[in-house]
């Protein structure tokens, strides 16, 4: 253990932390924006588009993230038409490749989270919306989507933490985010323990803060949904001896 390694390299680690944070927040925002329309298309089973999106989410949810990153970073360089096109400006840049991979990956998971929430919306509440003269558009924008987004908070919070952890894979394509910075220190000082432990603590603190924020969101937006009351009953609540 040699804490001076950490202390001497605080700027490097902070840079890494910064890269991690904006890589994941940007992919989360972009992924969220992609996921909502995709989930609606899945929910409404729009012909063709539904199958294509199903294929997309299936691929990104069933292959390892690191392969997805390699495919986007190295794979696209194999095709000369890509190398010769304007896309190359984007794809040759490791950061942007990482961003694209993370965005598509989180979009895939988030699409399925939202789709599931939309599909399990209580029919009662839609019935009331329609009975009061709302158009389908109104019923969705005012009732179904707001309600479904609230019910998506718990699985979505898992997705956010999952993506944070996955971001360490970005170091595999030379992005020096938090884990990448620790790996650099390891190779420089031949001490794996100190930098990796320090960085683990940083992840731990971020996850702790995220968990706290999501708990607050749940309390603010979810706690009073009756469905949630039912599903959060503990075994002890049933009077089982």
């Amino acid at each position: 253990m040699n804490f001076s390694i950490v202390i001497d390299n605080i700027p490097l680690l902070l840079d890494g932390l910064w890269v991690t944070l904006h890589l994941i927040s940007l992919s989360l925002v972009l992924g969220f924006m992609l996921a909502l329309p995709l989930a609606l298309i899945r929910h409404f089973k729009v012909p063709v588009a539904n199958q294509l999106i199903w294929g997309f989410t299936y691929f990104f949810r069933s292959t390892p993230l690191i392969l997805q990153i390699y495919l986007i970073y190295y794979g696209t360089g194999q095709f000369s038409w890509i190398r010769d096109s304007w896309m190359w400006v984007i794809l040759e840049k490791a950061y942007l490749c990482g961003l694209i991979a993370f965005t598509l990956n989180t979009a895939a998971y988030t699409t399925e989270i939202f789709r599931n929430a939309l599909d399990t919306m209580r029919k009662n509440e839609i019935e009331a919306a329609i009975a009061f003269g709302m158009s389908t558009w109104k019923a969705y924008t005012r009732i179904v989507i707001p309600n479904s987004l609230r019910r998506s908070i718990p699985p979505y919070s898992n997705e956010v933490i999952f993506l944070l952890h996955s971001s360490s894979i970005a170091s595999a394509i030379t992005i020096t985010e938090l884990t990448g910075a620790a790996r650099y220190l390891y190779s420089k000082y031949y001490d794996p323990f100190t930098p990796f432990l320090a960085v683990s603590l940083v992840y731990l603190v971020i996850v702790f803060l995220l968990t706290y924020i999501f708990k607050l969101l749940e309390r603010r937006f979810l706690s009073y949904l009756s469905i949630n009351h039912e599903s959060t009953k503990k075994l002890g609540d049933f009077g089982n001896p």
Partner: peptide, 23 residues
């Protein structure tokens, strides 16, 4: 469709399961 929405807005329903908007 406009006729239907207009008429529905003048017939108000009270449901067996209340059907309030929970959020």
């Amino acid at each position: 469709n406009k006729q239907v929405l207009r008429i529905r807005s003048k017939l108000s329903m009270v449901f067996q399961q209340f059907n309030l908007w929970t959020h």
